Computed example of a mutant assay.
Amino acid sequence: MKVPQIRLESTTAQIGLQTRNAINNIQQPKADLSIEQPKAELSIKTTRSKLTIDQSQARADVDLKSIAKRKEEFAQKGYQDLLAGIARRAQEGVELMKIENGGNPIASQAKQNSQKPRKEFGLGFIPSAGSVKVQYDPAKVDIDIKQNKPKIDVKVNKPIYEYEAGGVDVTLERRNELKIDFEMIDIKA
């Protein structure tokens, strides 16, 4: 006897998955840095030193006098000698006026005018101690420094950030199928 037989053949669906990873890119540019150091300002002021040596007294002690000093001394000595001469002559005149009082004024005056005065001699240091006068004013130095601070300029650069999202692509690689067949089978009873 022949019996119908149903044959079922199925194929499952097949899914394909393709993934893309996310891309994350971060770059940090260096900061822009500028440093400038201005020079310090330096000011130096100097007052010269002064040395004064006065040796006029020492030169006078060793008889090395200037012409002006000699003229002044000679004029002064001449004036003193003139006054002394006038005083001596006046005194001699008074003595001669009073000749009647006795004595011998003419002989004593002649004797006095004919004798030279005695020279005096004394020891001394030539030039005398302390005759050279020295005065020294030291130099003065004023130093002024103005310090200039450095000029620092910083520009911060922001990070460069790039992001590309990942994803999943789903595809149907194979469809599902169902095949149905009918066949007659002989069965022996």
Rank of each mutant, 00 (worst) to 15 (best):
D81V: 13
L83E: 06
K155P: 02
E36M: 04
D181S: 13
E36Q: 15
K116Y: 15
K77M: 07
L42H: 09
M97Q: 13
G122Q: 10
P117R: 11
S56Y: 00
I106W: 01
K50E: 15
I6R: 01
P117H: 02
R48Q: 04
L42A: 05
S128H: 03
T12K: 05
P159D: 07
N157P: 00
Q37G: 02
L33Y: 03
D144A: 15
S49C: 05
L33W: 07
V154D: 05
I15M: 13
G122N: 13
K71H: 06
Y136V: 13
K140D: 14
P4Q: 09
G102A: 03
K71C: 10
A22L: 02
G16D: 09
N113Q: 12
I160P: 01
I99G: 01
A22N: 04
S131Y: 00
L64S: 12
N21R: 04
V132M: 02
G16T: 10
A129N: 04
L178W: 00
A87M: 12
L96S: 11
L83H: 03
V154L: 14
A139S: 14
P150S: 11
K2P: 05
G124W: 03
Q57I: 09
I99N: 02
T52A: 01
I145S: 06
K151P: 04
R59Q: 10
I160G: 06
R89W: 11
P117I: 11
I185R: 10
V94L: 07
E9S: 15
G166A: 05
A58W: 00
K2W: 09
A22W: 03
A84P: 10
Q27H: 14
A107S: 12
Q27W: 11
R48A: 08
A165V: 03
Y163Q: 06
S114M: 14
I86M: 10
I126T: 13
G167F: 01
A58H: 04
A84Q: 15
S131Q: 01
I143S: 02
I187C: 01
Q147A: 14
S108P: 02
P138K: 10
N157A: 14
I67M: 10
G122K: 06
Q80D: 12
T19R: 12
R70T: 01
K140N: 14
A31V: 07
I6W: 01
Q18P: 02
Q80T: 12
P117F: 08
Q112I: 09
D32T: 12
P117S: 14
N25K: 13
Q91F: 05
I86G: 07
V141E: 03
Q112W: 02
Q112R: 13
G78K: 06
Y161R: 08
R70Q: 04
V62N: 04
F182M: 07
A22C: 08
K146I: 06
P105A: 02
K146C: 01
K77H: 11
P38V: 07
K71R: 03
R88P: 00
D32I: 08
Q28C: 04
P138G: 12
A58I: 00
K98L: 14
I187K: 12
I44T: 04
G103C: 10
Q91V: 05
A58Y: 01
Q91S: 14
D181E: 11
F125A: 01
S10D: 02
K45E: 08
T11C: 00
G93T: 10
A129Y: 10
R175L: 10
N176P: 00
I185H: 01
K188L: 01
Y136K: 05
N148M: 12
K116T: 15
I67T: 14
E41A: 12
K149Y: 07
K69W: 05
Y161I: 15
G166D: 00
V62L: 10
A110D: 03
